[in-house]
Computed example of a mutant assay.
Amino acid sequence: MQTEASEPDRQFVTALARGLEILRCFDAERRMLGTTEIAHLTGLAQPTVWRLCHTLQKTGFLNAVPGKEKLQLGVAAIALGGAALAGQEALEVIRPLLQSLADRYQAAVALGRRDGDSIVYLLRCQGNSPLLMNLRVGSRIPLFHSAIGWAYLACCAPEERSGLLAQASASGKGGADAAEQQAMAKALALYPARGFVFHERPQYQINTVAATIELPVGERYVVSCGGPASLLPQALMLDEVGPLLAQLARELQPILLMGRHV
């Protein structure tokens, strides 16, 4: 979306952007949504949401859920997603590499890409631990409140990072307390030397490390490894898991680069 401070873009179709924003509301955790929920998630007025959802239903991108006052993604949206996944054989090559790390540390290992103010999981592999969060492919992880998001930010130019933070703050999604802001600043500052970021969530007893995979023209993937602090204490994450993840990121770079041309 354009910000109020930006110059008007004569080629930008606001109605189309709003419709796409509605489609982004649906993910693995939010498969069915009502129009009130969509209005809350997008910040759009209810009448606008009604009109856009009506259009998306007419064009097959949304369907009404039988017996419920909710909507779900339609065949057209699913077909579009399938087209986007075509040629993604590189992900299947990467999966066993992620699973190997997950099994070694009884952790959750994920590969993702940024979409707006979130990182969307493209792959997720889990080791043998009952304490891991129930996330899956398609889950959206907050950019400013996660290791995988911090890793992405660590490789942004300062002006790009500031722009993302300004957008998140304007939408009310970028708020962080002083302790988290300080932790993020420290993690980003240490990234060039470490090759990864470390993020701890004491309230959930979870520790995570993450690294960026940079491709040409500013394209980036991010990979993370995390789990219970009891199994993955800070010292282990900093001395062993983090460096291994940074090495994995380097190994994945040529695979993903090759996948761009499939």
Results as ranks from 00 to 15, higher is better:
Glu69Asp: 04
Leu232Asp: 07
Gly116Cys: 06
Ala83Cys: 11
Ala235Ser: 13
Leu252Ser: 10
Glu214Phe: 00
Ser171Thr: 06
Gly242Leu: 09
Thr42Trp: 00
Arg201Gln: 12
Ala90His: 04
Thr42Cys: 00
Ala84Trp: 14
Phe198Gly: 02
Arg95Leu: 09
Ala151Asp: 08
Arg18Met: 13
Asp103Gly: 00
Lys173Trp: 11
Leu85Lys: 04
His54Tyr: 10
Ser169Leu: 15
Leu85Glu: 12
Glu4Tyr: 11
Glu92Asp: 00
Trp150Lys: 01
Ala5Phe: 11
Phe61Val: 02
Leu73Met: 00
Glu89Val: 01
Ile119Gly: 09
Glu214Ser: 08
Cys25Ala: 13
Leu52Pro: 04
Phe26Thr: 05
Glu21Asn: 09
Leu231Arg: 12
Glu89Ser: 05
Val241Pro: 05
Asp115Ala: 09
Ala179Thr: 11
Tyr105Gly: 02
Glu37Ala: 15
Asp117Glu: 06
Leu44Pro: 02
Leu238Thr: 12
Gly172Ala: 06
Pro142His: 05
Glu7Asn: 06
Phe198Trp: 06
Val241Leu: 05
Arg95Gly: 04
Met1Arg: 05
Arg194Asn: 15
Ala154Asn: 04
Ala185Gln: 14
Ala187Gly: 06
Gln106Trp: 04
Ala45Cys: 00
Cys125Gln: 15
Glu251Cys: 10
Leu101Asp: 01
Pro130Gln: 03
Ile78Met: 13
Leu62Cys: 09
Leu122Thr: 04
Arg95Ala: 14
Arg104Ser: 09
Ile94Pro: 02
Ser6Met: 14
Ser100Thr: 11
Ile78Leu: 15
Arg140Ser: 03
Asn134Gly: 03
Ala83His: 12
Ile94Met: 07
Tyr204Glu: 14
Ala15Gln: 15
Gln203Leu: 14
Thr36Asp: 15
Glu7Gly: 04
Leu248Ile: 13
Val109Pro: 01
Cys155Glu: 14
Ser100Phe: 03
Thr208Asn: 08
Arg95Tyr: 05
Ala183Leu: 12
Leu97Met: 11
Ala5Trp: 11
Gly43Thr: 08
Ala235Ile: 14
Ala157Cys: 05
Met32Ala: 14
Ala90Leu: 02
Leu165Phe: 10
Arg140Tyr: 01
Leu143Ile: 04
Ile206Cys: 00
Phe198Lys: 03
Phe144Pro: 06
Gln106Glu: 10
Gln46Asp: 07
Gly19Ser: 13
Leu91His: 00
Leu62Lys: 08
Gln72Met: 15
Gly226Asp: 07
Leu98Thr: 00
Gly19Phe: 07
Pro243Trp: 11
Arg24Gly: 01
Leu188His: 07
Glu37Gly: 08
Val137Trp: 00
Tyr221Met: 13
Ala168His: 05
Gly82Tyr: 10
Leu44Ser: 02
Asn207Trp: 01
